[in-house]
């Protein structure tokens, strides 16, 4: 049966509306980042497209040029010759290091842990998962002060490694839970078939289970990456000179006003690495990798 044109049109309209709702804030943010300040703050009207686009905000935040005196408000950044406090380059690097690092470590740990939890029976294996998960029940802010002290004493404060460890700890419970549910979907007979075929436990994991759980692994990696990329609280407290992008952006809200241009420029730029990462893994983000393994 063919859908009527009306139905089809309606369907497209609704899809466009929904996509619009999600895309609009990002598009507006991107637009803001290329507006001169006068267009951002026009008290008489909302400026949509009739402004002179400028890449100044990106020049300063992403390329690290020092701020030019701007004509509109007549203010200039004083004194700090060459040392541009709006330069976001090092924070981008830090964010990438921390997000990639913690994602990598989290997925490796979670992969091994979830295989064990899914496949092996040991005393307390049931409670174990809940126990791991309980680590996520309390809000990080509740333990932030002791954490800062511990990290300080261990020499991890204000290091990439420290932040990677912190993000890994926060991510692992969810990652294990997620991956375990993917592993549980693979019947244990597959492991046993592999072992009868002559595989050791590790070969069975590496050659049989891992390829089948690739989709879950990709999903887990995306979640971990996005979490780490946008995480604010721990980064704020555990670092001082190393600044990840979310923390860096808050420094653009100064006593002399919020630099909306810079905020939107760095914010828009921050979308890009996540986007690239997700593009890289999304071809693995498919269901049904175990289809055909068993009779339905």
């Amino acid at each position: 049966m063919h859908d009527s044109t009306l139905k089809l049109t309606l369907r497209y309209l609704v899809s466009i509306l929904i996509v619009g709702i999600f895309v609009f804030p990002i598009a507006w943010w991107g637009l803001t980042s290329v507006k001169p300040i006068s267009a951002v703050f026009d008290k008489d009207r909302i400026v949509v497209f009739d402004f002179e686009p400028t890449l100044e905000n990106y020049r300063v935040t992403v390329l690290g040029y020092s701020k030019r005196g701007s004509k509109e408000d007549g203010k200039t950044l004083m004194g700090t010759s060459g040392n541009n406090s709006y330069d976001g380059r090092s924070s981008i690097v830090s964010s990438v290091i921390v997000a990639v690092g913690s994602t990598l470590i989290t997925t490796i740990f979670a992969l091994l842990a979830s295989y064990g939890l899914s496949r092996m029976r040991f005393w307390g294996s049931q409670g174990y998962l809940n126990w791991i998960l309980s680590q996520r029940f309390l809000p990080p802010v509740a333990i932030i002060v002791p954490l800062v002290f511990i990290f300080h004493d261990m020499g991890l404060r204000d290091t990439h490694a420290g932040l990677i460890i912190a993000h890994t700890l926060i991510n692992i419970p969810i990652a294990v839970l997620l991956l375990k549910s993917f592993m549980d979907d693979i019947p244990i007979d597959i492991d046993q078939a592999a072992m009868i075929d002559g595989a050791t436990r590790f070969q069975c994991f590496w050659m049989v289970i891992l390829p089948m759980v690739k989709g879950g692994l990709a999903a887990t990696a995306v979640l971990c990456f996005v979490f780490s990329w946008t995480e604010f609280l721990l980064s704020l407290f555990l670092t001082s000179s190393i600044r990840t992008i979310p923390v860096k952006i808050t420094t653009y809200v100064t006593s002399t006003g919020s630099e909306w241009g810079y905020i939107s420029a760095l914010g828009t730029s921050a979308i890009l690495p996540s986007f690239i990462f997700i593009l890289l893994v999304q071809r693995h983000l498919v269901r049904g990798l175990t289809m055909g393994a068993i009779k339905d």
Binding site: D189, Q192, A193, M195, I196, T200, M212, L289, K295
Partner: peptide
């Protein structure tokens, strides 16, 4: 003895094929 060392072959009730 570990299953892999018994030189047996088994056909499972649900086939248990390697889907990938």
């Amino acid at each position: 003895m570990h299953p892999k060392d018994r030189n047996i072959a088994m056909v499972f009730q649900n086939y248990a094929l390697y889907a990938h």
